[in-house]
Computed example of a mutant assay.
Amino acid sequence: MLKEIRPAIFVLLALTLITGLLYPLAMTAVAGFAFPTRAEGSLITRNGQVIGSALIGQEFKDDKYFHGRPSATSAADPNDATKTVPAPYNAANSSGSNLGPTSKALADRVKEDVDKLRAENPAQAVPVDLVTTSASGLDPDISPEAALFQVPRVAKARGLPEASVQALIARQTQGRLLGLLGEPRVNVLALNLALDAARVQ
């Protein structure tokens, strides 16, 4: 019987070693060599301090900063482990809200966000990505239209001409990959850092 089982045990150990150890280590080494910044999480530093990642959104509430997409991520309630509380851009709990198009809670939340944004900029239509969450809840980017929608608020808070803020958005806008894939986008953290770097308050 051992004679029949021995090849199966050998194959199990060999495949475990190859697919569970050697292959992941080889891919990690290749990624670290070919794409070192991406392999390390696309971290963004300022003054030697890591302040975020280009891949994970952050919550900005101050009027002088651009705001990203809403985030539906949550975390355990510290007062009751059986419940959760909102924790925007919680990378440890990446997820959408799971609320469907017929959900009253979703409709109420979107209506409240739309009303707030319309009060902020009544002359423009509210871009959909400013009131809808992404599937991951961590989206770091917004559309150029969503960034331009926020120009009046940011320009007023910083005492800048709107044209200057619009020009900054244009410089921070990333196009489609290879001119074909994806949509034009603006990384919110990079845009806000560019605003700060311009020393405009």
Rank of each mutant, 00 (worst) to 15 (best):
E120W: 12
R38E: 14
K116A: 15
L22F: 11
P78Y: 08
A135W: 10
K156M: 12
E112G: 05
A105S: 04
I18M: 14
L13D: 00
Q172H: 03
G100C: 03
N47T: 12
L193M: 10
D139R: 08
A14P: 00
D80C: 06
D141R: 05
A167S: 10
F10Y: 14
T45K: 12
E183Y: 12
A107N: 02
F10C: 13
L148H: 07
T132C: 00
A198Q: 14
D196A: 06
D63G: 06
R69D: 00
Y23W: 03
A92P: 02
G100E: 01
L22M: 11
R158D: 04
F60A: 11
Q124M: 06
V188K: 00
V11G: 02
P7H: 00
A14S: 09
A146W: 03
A14Q: 02
A34F: 12
G96W: 04
N187L: 04
P161G: 11
A123M: 08
D129Y: 04
L55P: 05
R153D: 02
I56G: 10
P78V: 09
S134A: 09
D129H: 09
P36G: 09
S42C: 14
N93Y: 06
E4G: 14
L160T: 12
A81K: 11
K64T: 07
G182M: 09
T28Y: 06
T82W: 10
R69V: 02
K104T: 10
N192T: 01
P88V: 15
R158Y: 15
G159F: 15
G159A: 08
T28C: 03
N98V: 01
D139G: 09
A157S: 11
T19W: 11
A157G: 13
R69E: 01
D115F: 15
V131I: 11
Q124S: 02
P7E: 04
G48H: 10
Q58M: 14
A76D: 06
G159Q: 13
M27S: 07
L195K: 04
V126C: 02
A31Y: 08
V30L: 12
L130D: 00
A190S: 06
R38G: 13
L2A: 11
V188Q: 01
K3F: 05
R199N: 12
T82Q: 13
A54R: 13
I44D: 12
T37C: 07
R109S: 15
A105T: 03
L12R: 04
Q49H: 15
P36W: 05
S164N: 14
T37F: 14
P161Y: 14
L177W: 06
P101K: 04
P7D: 04
A170D: 10
G137I: 00
